[in-house]
């Protein structure tokens, strides 16, 4: 008898393996250091944005503004951070503080996060376009250097993804802070009665999300080397899908950082896979939907069995 809960945790990894195997099968030349590097390089910013989303989902909220936020970070970094590092860092810190303030506002007024972040997405996008009306700017050299760093044997994106996943996993799953944070999603009332501050928990999760959103924007800028306000618009959907693909739930504080990173990798790979398949451009986006559905259907099959057993 297979252990269902183990299977459930393994599912994101299995999905990734299947998509990876399918990609290798369709295009054997990708099975190399260079091929993997090229295919997965954009997985790093997507994984970071997915982690940011995961922090918000942990406390039962949803962030519909992470995509434009990542775009804004890129615009700020390609202009302010490039020209004046001190002011640039200050601006990025202010952006993270904004996230914390939004978290506090949502908690204190008991607001629906979907609407607040929906409004915020307009604000981020607008400010980004104000800073950089047309694509341009320059990535700081150190950023480009980090993102084009080449590890021996193992491609940089894989190392980065594993490190990000493990660090966040340890922090959220094995620390007392992580337990409280997930508890705030699981049973906020019980947590409050036990004497923990829900406000502070929510604010710290939003601050963390802002921090990882900034990291995502920086890493994306390091890859593209110039910024565009709209470059990350799709990240909002990618990040939500990544968290869910990775075994997270929308409510109840049930999330998995490693799973989220793997989910992001799967999504990034699926994009390349579909290009290699040479399906008509009309159906590119549809095929992405189909992949999502298939993976989630598999998960449904596994969790269904879990409840029965």
């Amino acid at each position: 008898m297979i252990n269902r809960s183990l299977l459930r945790q393994a599912l994101p990894f299995l999905s990734l393996a299947v998509v990876l195997a399918a990609t290798f099968y369709v295009q054997p030349r990708t099975m190399s250091y260079f091929g993997l590097n090229l295919m997965l390089q954009y997985a790093v910013p997507i994984a970071l944005a997915t982690i940011a989303q995961m922090f918000i989902i942990t406390v039962n909220d949803l962030d519909l503004s992470i995509g434009p936020f990542v775009g804004l970070v890129g615009c700020v970094s390609a202009t302010l951070l490039y020209n004046d590092p001190f002011l640039g860092v200050l601006a990025l810190l202010a952006l993270i503080a904004c996230y914390g303030a939004v978290g506090a506002l949502i908690h204190l007024r008991n607001l629906p996060s979907i609407v607040v972040t929906l409004g915020l997405s307009f604000v981020w996008l607008g400010i980004a376009v104000l800073i950089l009306p047309s694509p341009g700017g320059k990535a700081p050299d150190w950023l480009k250097a980090i993102m084009s760093f080449q590890f021996p044997y193992v491609p940089f994106p894989i190392v980065a993804a594993v490190v990000i996943g493990l660090v966040v996993h340890v922090a959220l799953m094995n620390s007392s802070f992580g337990v409280i944070a997930r508890g705030a999603g699981g049973n906020p009332k019980a947590l409050a009665r036990a004497g923990w501050s829900l406000l502070w928990t929510k604010v710290s999760m939003y601050l963390l999300a802002g921090f990882f959103g900034v990291l995502s924007g920086l890493s994306l800028l390091g890859l593209t080397t110039s910024a565009d306000a709209h470059v990350a618009d799709r990240y909002t959907l990618y990040s939500i899908a990544g968290v869910i693909l990775g075994g997270g739930e929308f409510v109840g504080g049930r999330v998995s950082p490693l799973g989220a990173v793997v989910g992001a990798l799967t999504l990034a790979l699926a994009g390349s896979f579909l290009i290699f398949l040479k399906i008509s451009p009309d159906w590119q986006i549809g095929a992405q939907g189909a992949i999502l559905i298939i993976v989630l259907a598999l998960r449904a099959a596994v969790t269904y069995g879990e409840k029965r057993a």
Binding site: A241, S280, G286, G289, A290, L292, I293, L296
Partner: peptide, 27 residues
């Protein structure tokens, strides 16, 4: 069908199906 039979959360279910629907419309 996606929500009930496959037990996919509605946000992701309708998002995935919107991709398929859009592709159908495009083609």
């Amino acid at each position: 069908g996606l929500i009930r039979l496959l037990r996919i959360p509605p946000i992701i279910a309708t998002l995935s199906s919107s991709f398929l629907v859009l592709s159908t419309a495009i083609s």
